[in-house]
C-alpha cells in the first residue's frame, strides 16, 4: 500500500464517525421532517398512514380543513411567528448591547473582583432553562412575586407581568428572562475575542487623544464584528429553542396566543404528527430566513490586525 493511499485511508476513518453521526442525527431527521410533513401519520397503525401532498401546509396557510375554513389557524401561526421574531430581535439587540458593554469593561478596565463578576454573569448559563423559568415565575408572580414586592415598596401598583388580555406585557417579561440567561454566555465569547485585539492599537489611539467611547466604536466594535456576526446566528437558533421552554413553563396554559411561539404551536399538535412536521418545516424555513437576512444586513468589510 502506498503512503498516499494509507494517508487517505487514515483520513477516511478519522472522518467517518463524525460524518456518519452528522448524517444520521442531522441530515436524516431534517429530510424526514420534510417528508413527514406530506403525510397524515397514524402512529398506531402504519398501514393507515397516507400521503396527503401539501394538505398540511394548505391547512396551515389558509385554515381549510375538509371544506370548512377556520381562519384562526393561519392567524395563530402568524401570531406565533410574529412573537418569535419579536423575541429574536428584542432579546438579540439587548443581549448584544449588554454583553459587549460588560465584556469590554471587564477586559479593558482595571476593575477589582474581575473574575468574581465574570463568574456571577456566567452563572445563569449553568442553570437549566427550566430552573430559570421557575425563578422568573417566582419573580413575576402577581400577588407574591419579587418584582411586585419591590415596586410596591416604592408605592407603585402591582403589575401583571405574565398577564393575559389585549394589553399584556407577557412577551417583554419573557424577553427579560431570556436576556438574563443569555448575557453571560455571549459576554464570555466577546471577552475571548476582545482579548485578542492587540494592546498597541489602544495605546496608539490613546496617544492620539482618543477617548474611551471613541476607542470603543472605532477599534473594539470593528475588530469584534466577525464574532458578533457569528453570534447573531446563535441568537436566532437559541432564542427559538429557549422561548419554547420559557413559554411552556411560564405561560404554557395561556389559552390564547399572546405568548405563543412557533415551537409551542408545534408541540401542541403532537397527536397529529404530519401536521406538526409541517409546522417544523416552517420553523426551519423561518430560522434559516432570519439568519440569512441578519447575515446580509450585517455584512461589512472585515478588518484585520
Amino acid at each position: 500500500m502506498g503512503r498516499k493511499k494509507q494517508q487517505n485511508l487514515f483520513v477516511f476513518f478519522a472522518l467517518a464517525p463524525a460524518v456518519i453521526c452528522f448524517f444520521a442525527f442531522m441530515i436524516l431527521p431534517t429530510v424526514r421532517i420534510f417528508l413527514m410533513s406530506l403525510f397524515e401519520v397514524n402512529k398506531y397503525d402504519a398501514a393507515q398512514t397516507k400521503f396527503v401532498g401539501l394538505n398540511n401546509f394548505i391547512t396551515l396557510f389558509t385554515g381549510k380543513i375538509d371544506g370548512t375554513i377556520i381562519p384562526e389557524i393561519p392567524l395563530k401561526i402568524a401570531t406565533s411567528l410574529k412573537n418569535t421574531l419579536f423575541l429574536v430581535v428584542i432579546v438579540g439587540i439587548i443581549t448584544l448591547f449588554i454583553a459587549i458593554l460588560m465584556a469590554s469593561i471587564l477586559v479593558r478596565e482595571n476593575l477589582k473582583f474581575k473574575n468574581l463578576f465574570r463568574i456571577i454573569f456566567y452563572i445563569p448559563n449553568i442553570l437549566s432553562i427550566v430552573v430559570i423559568a421557575g425563578i422568573f415565575q417566582a419573580i413575576y408572580e402577581k400577588e407574591f412575586g419579587l418584582l411586585n414586592a419591590v415596586i410596591g415598596f416604592f408605592g407603585m401598583k402591582p403589575v401583571d407581568w405574565l398577564g393575559t388580555g389585549s394589553n399584556t406585557i407577557v412577551l417583554y417579561s419573557l424577553a427579560g428572562a431570556m436576556v438574563w440567561q443569555a448575557v453571560g454566555y455571549y459576554m464570555v465569547m466577546y471577552m475571548a475575542s476582545l482579548s485578542t485585539i492587540p494592546e498597541h492599537l489602544y495605546e496608539a489611539s490613546a496617544l492620539e487623544g482618543a477617548g474611551k467611547i471613541y476607542e470603543f466604536f472605532h477599534i473594539t466594535l470593528p475588530l469584534l464584528w466577525g464574532t458578533i456576526r457569528t453570534t447573531l446566528t446563535f441568537f436566532v437558533v437559541s432564542t427559538i429553542n429557549l422561548s419554547f421552554v420559557l413559554v411552556t413553563v411560564m405561560a404554557g396554559s395561556r389559552s390564547d396566543n399572546e405568548a405563543s411561539v412557533i415551537l409551542f404551536e408545534m408541540a401542541k399538535q403532537q397527536s397529529v404528527q404530519g401536521y406538526a412536521m409541517a409546522i417544523g418545516v416552517i420553523t426551519f424555513m423561518f430560522s434559516f430566513g432570519v439568519s440569512v437576512v441578519m447575515n446580509a444586513i450585517t455584512k461589512r468589510e472585515t478588518y484585520e490586525f
Binding site: 385554515g63 380543513i65 375538509d66 393575559t164 388580555g165 389585549s166 389559552s255 390564547d256 397529529v272 409541517a278
Partner: peptide, 23 residues
C-alpha cells in the same frame, strides 16, 4: 380522527377564558 389544527375542547371550554376577559 385526530384532525390537524382542530381542538374542540379548547375551542369550547378553554376559549371561554377569552370571552370572559373580553378578547
Amino acid at each position: 380522527k385526530e384532525v390537524a389544527g382542530v381542538n374542540f375542547k379548547e375551542a369550547l371550554y378553554k376559549n371561554l377564558n377569552n370571552v370572559i376577559n373580553g378578547t
